[in-house]
Amino acid sequence: MKVLSLFDGISCGMLALQRAGIPVECYDAFEIDKYAVTVSKRNFPVIVHHGNVYDGDFTQFKGYDLLLGGSPCTYWSIAKKDREIDCDGEGFRLFQEYVRALEESGCQYFLYENNYSVHQNIKDEITRVLGVEPIMINSALVSAQNRKRCYWTNIPFTSFPKDKGILLKDVLESGVTWQDKSYCMTARYPGAVLFNTLERKQRTMVAEPVPINTYCNGETMPMGAAQRGRYVDGEKTEQHIEIREDGKSNCLTTVQKDSLVCSPVRIGQYGKGGQGQRIYSVVGKSVTLSANGGGQGAKTGLYKIDLPDGDYIIRKLTPIEAERLQTLPDNYTAGISNTQRYKCIGNGWTVDVIAHILGGLHDV
């Protein structure tokens, strides 16, 4: 089968074709995210990449069999303030490139995907243009993630995927969860903080038992600190408590906030105790927010939560756990930074859903 893929991302379409057992003669992809292309090339060196859809001459793909694509939902998503609700914006212009590819290539079969939350006005117009009704499938049937997506396709398939009964706890490398299913994995997951999960019902986080009493021979200790004003966006200033880590106080001055004591703050660590591996008590002052850094507690450190059955930290999902939510192989996105891995995974497809749909090609 000859395949043309628009907005290809990390080539979940190719992986889905393999899982569905569909032989692929050639696979041509259009994608502008350099990190996604890096992942695609590492996993599938045979894919031919062409860049931006706006620059595409799709007549060169005459005779191809299948067109895949899901134009970016950034402009249409309900999570976006002032999202587009009609067909005059950039979101629909990108969809029109998909339509142009379908017309110019003459592909016999097509599969188009987008967010279930897209405004009904836009969904109705997509339906009118493609000539088929959307089918909503929740990825929760085949993975540990709630992810409702609409699929427009002329590939004949007569049933929904069977519920595999996969729960969030089943995909964790370690730790425990208080949810059966993850919230939808999105490209914004790198910025996950606890209130996203508890209050906004998004960006799932999990609990990790704390190896307590691992700092200073099991004893918490006072920490020297200072309250500093730091510029934000080059104009306004914000006050931060900045902790010393050498056991010393700051220089005594006439300004009281220059030399403070916080106790307790840090109570443990993972690994070598880097910024993202330090454990802090919720009693005491916050660690200074770091603009960079990695680890389970990137940017802020890990905060201990006291629960009846023990002490836990709340952490983000690991990249491997995020891959499992999208039914990707472990370390499929390795080779780029974790931040970019999360973004690429969130922008991708749930592979087993796509494989189920593409399986209908066996019957044509």
Rank of each mutant, 00 (worst) to 15 (best):
L317H: 05
R324N: 09
Y342Q: 11
T339P: 09
K343R: 12
L317Y: 09
C344F: 02
L325R: 01
K316M: 15
D330R: 07
Q340E: 14
A334L: 07
N338M: 10
T339H: 11
G335I: 13
E323V: 02
P329V: 01
I313Y: 02
D330N: 14
G346I: 08
T327N: 08
P319F: 03
R324G: 02
P319T: 03
I314T: 12
R341Q: 13
T339V: 15
K316V: 08
G346T: 13
I336N: 00
T333Q: 03
I313A: 13
G335A: 12
P319I: 01
A334D: 07
K316N: 14
C344S: 14
L328M: 13
I320D: 06
R315P: 06
R315F: 05
A334E: 12
N331F: 08
T333V: 13
S337T: 15
T333W: 04
N338R: 06
E323R: 04
Y332A: 05
R324D: 00
S337I: 04
T318K: 08
I313V: 15
K343D: 06
L317Q: 07
I313R: 11
T318W: 12
Y342M: 10
G335N: 11
Q340V: 08
A334S: 15
I313T: 15
N338S: 12
I336W: 08
T327Y: 06
D330M: 12
L325N: 01
E323K: 09
Y332H: 05
G335H: 00
T318N: 06
I345D: 08
K316D: 01
T339F: 15
G346R: 02
E321C: 13
T333Y: 03
P319D: 09
S337Y: 15
P319A: 12
Q340K: 15
L325I: 11
N338P: 05
D330F: 03
D330I: 10
I314P: 00
K343Y: 03
A322D: 05
A334W: 00
C344W: 02
D330T: 00
P329R: 06
R341E: 10
L317E: 03
I314M: 11
S337F: 09
I313G: 03
A334V: 00
A322E: 01
I320W: 00
L328I: 12
I313P: 01
E323H: 10
A322G: 14
T327K: 11
E323L: 02
T327E: 08
T339I: 10
I345E: 04
E321H: 05
I320V: 15
R324Q: 14
R315E: 05
C344Q: 04
I314V: 15
G335F: 06
